[in-house]
Design a protein around this nucleic acid. Structure first.
Lengths: 248, 248
DNA sequence: CGGTACCTTGACGAGCATCAAACCCTGTGG
DNA sequence: CCACAGGGTTTGATGCTCGTCAAGGTACCG
């Protein structure tokens, strides 16, 4: 397999959201890279119950990470953005407990799980980045749990819109001021926030009509960020996300 | 500060739930250890908003990790058991986003955050264990999110009882067959599962009356594990937790 | 044009929250 | 030894939030 994108040319590296690479880190990562993966929309990249042999960094596109229950319901654990590192679960559990599915076209950087160990030994810096990635993920999920567990439907939806737009902006997806792609369905939002599709729709509609944002054709435009944050139960300004995170 | 408990004598090491230590790993960990901390019940070990300078491994006792909202509500993110490693959040975020509070008397093994880096460099094996710990945490939180988001009150409570008893058993807390300490209040359970105290009480009572378990004086006795797992929406037998995990 | 995927809206009822109060304990002090 | 207070548990009554059911609307696609 050839690498169409050299790590040195990785489009994500330039973003200020990601910590800078040393030349050595770059080289280690490049060696660890096994190839690339291009995926169509609505395809499953990782499937629950399977043993994942690979790890992926998202180079472009978006998706959802979710878990399905025996009763057929689905919980969206997190939305997947460029820069996200996925598949660690499979290295710790016997088998994957969650699935990852593409929403849009996606491009992945593929790493071999078997060589993960060498990767760690080769570069302590990079190995801490792994821990970092896992910790950030946990933080996101914990915040989602808090929102789903303690907030009303309105706050939950508002919170999701705030976080989704923030994350999109940070990885350079903005197509204009406060305007980012949001290719997900209302059903995805509903499954993420523990609400029914119908109630999600009605609540979302109310928020949009109140002038906090617009959302059509897969593009979200936040027109009143402060109002939206307030509705979400978030402090109007403060940022809880780490401003810079390592990229793997 | 002196170490009353040498890592070599750590009471947790013997448990088969934890991966064995090599002599070298033991030595590295011992060097990293800064001291010990004894805490009374109902005390705050880590507080949201603060910058944590230390990391802790729980040697004994139990507690809760939670996040408080601006509206005064509280989400319990996870229950803390012996062997748990806490404080990583503080190394990744600017400041802690969650608090940790003791429920019982607790004993911690204290590590200095400043020397975390040396720790990682000194032992790649141990550094991967950090990642492992973070990933396991994320898995637990994700499962909680799934339960809170998609299950009825009855399933949520049943799920909590199953997981709590399992975790307690694994770290050697059983006081008899299917009998483990459970020092938490119903309010803690309620805050963990996103339910009101009243509804938690009524639902819990129904489960207990149905003969799945008994719970009094801080001791949980599971009398019908299969029934309880079924009520929780879990497969009757399968184990999703990694059977062995590293101890830090 | 029929078919499918997604969004939207109304009607109805259930699950759960909230309010209120009583009932344990255990500890404390007169 | 008893009165009292405080933390936790338990129970009943009431009503709101949200889920479920049902149907219609729109866009897109073969």
């Amino acid at each position: 397999m050839t690498h169409k994108v050299k790590c040195a040319d990785c489009p994500l590296r330039g973003l200020e959201h990601f910590a800078p690479f040393s030349a050595e880190e770059l080289e280690v990562t490049q060696r660890f890279k096994a190839g690339e993966l291009t995926i169509d929309p609505q395809k499953t990249i990782l499937r629950e119950g399977a043993k994942a042999a690979q790890l992926y960094t998202v180079l472009s596109g978006m998706g959802v990470r979710y878990k399905t229950l025996s009763n057929g319901r689905r919980q969206v654990i997190n939305f997947i953005f460029p820069g996200d590192f996925i598949g660690l679960q499979g290295s710790v559990m016997e088998e994957m407990q969650q699935s990852v599915e593409s929403t849009t076209d996606m491009l992945f950087c593929v790493f071999d799980r078997a060589s993960l160990w060498q990767f760690i030994k080769a570069s302590p810096e990079r190995s801490f980045d792994l821990t970092w990635a896992a910790a950030v993920d946990e933080h996101l999920v914990a915040e989602a749990l808090t929102t789903v567990g303690q907030q009303t439907a309105e706050s939950r939806i508002a919170w999701a819109l705030v976080r989704l737009s923030e994350r999109a902006e940070r990885v350079g997806l903005s197509s204009g001021p406060d305007e980012t792609p949001l290719p997900f369905r209302q059903q995805d939002l509903a499954d993420a926030m523990g609400l029914s599709l119908v109630h999600t729709n009605k609540t979302l509609r109310r928020l949009l009509e109140r002038g906090y944002a617009r959302w059509s054709d897969g593009v979200l435009t936040v027109t009143d960020r402060r109002g939206l944050r307030a509705a979400a139960g978030l402090a109007v300004d403060d940022e809880t996300m780490p401003t810079r995170r390592p990229l793997i």
